[in-house]
């Protein structure tokens, strides 16, 4: 069989195999949906609790974020352990979102210490949400994530010019646009790809 292997065959094999491994660069949107919903619920409930005058209105954040962190850790570990192939996209995503997490904690730490205001921290957080989806969208070649990232940056700027309490609503709006909508679109794209 090897003796009849021609140059054209060589080219065909390379093209086919590279196409196959490229098809493995997929995302079912799970993490976008998980974090989209968690942040949306946390932001809106924080807003409502402030309106009704609850003195620990910030409480939904630590509860939901720690819960989300644990769920992400378990899901990520399982995914990594069961993945039979690791693409450069997987590696890029791991570094991007781990770096995102460190930056997020740093911003929250600065806000808690009073170095920056909560509005400024909300605006920066929205902007780095945008960075995360912008880069992921570029790697996945998925426009809704890229557009979501750009809109998040616009919302981050808007956040600086509105009353403090409404920054919670811009956070909610930014996760709807940059996480939830692209997350559901990714989910349906992934389902379609699975049937090919």
């Amino acid at each position: 069989m090897e003796t009849t292997f021609t140059e054209q065959d060589g080219l065909k094999v390379i093209t086919e195999m590279i196409e196959n491994s490229r098809a493995k660069i997929r995302d079912n949107g799970f993490f976008y949906l998980l974090w989209g919903w968690l942040v949306l619920i946390a932001g809106l409930s924080n807003f409502i609790l402030l309106i009704v005058g609850f003195d620990k209105a910030w409480l939904p954040w630590p509860v939901l974020m720690i819960g989300g962190g644990i769920a992400t850790g378990i899901a990520g570990y399982r995914l990594g352990k069961n993945a039979r192939v690791k693409t450069f996209f997987d590696i890029a995503m791991i570094y991007l979102w781990n770096g995102f997490l460190v930056l997020l904690l740093f911003i929250l730490f600065m806000a808690a210490r009073g170095v920056i205001s909560w509005v400024a921290s909300n605006a920066i957080i929205i902007a780095i949400y945008g960075l995360g989806t912008f880069v992921s969208g570029g790697l996945l070649k998925f426009k809704p994530l890229i557009i979501g990232g750009v809109i998040s940056w616009a919302l981050a700027i808007i956040t600086l010019f509105i009353p403090d309490i409404y920054s919670l609503l811009t956070i909610a709006l930014s996760v709807i646009i940059s996480y939830l909508i692209p997350g559901y679109l990714l989910k349906s794209r992934d389902k379609k790809l699975s049937h090919v």
Binding site: M1, E2, F5, D9, G10, V13, I14, E16, M17, I18, N20, S21, R22, K24, R84, V85, K86, T87, F88, D90, I91
Partner: peptide, 21 residues
């Protein structure tokens, strides 16, 4: 070493990924 169907398949698959089982 590469001009063979299966070995070229393996190398083409590995060139596009970090690692594969």
């Amino acid at each position: 070493l590469l001009h063979s169907q299966l070995r070229l398949q393996i190398m083409s698959l590995l060139i596009g990924v970090e690692s594969a089982e």
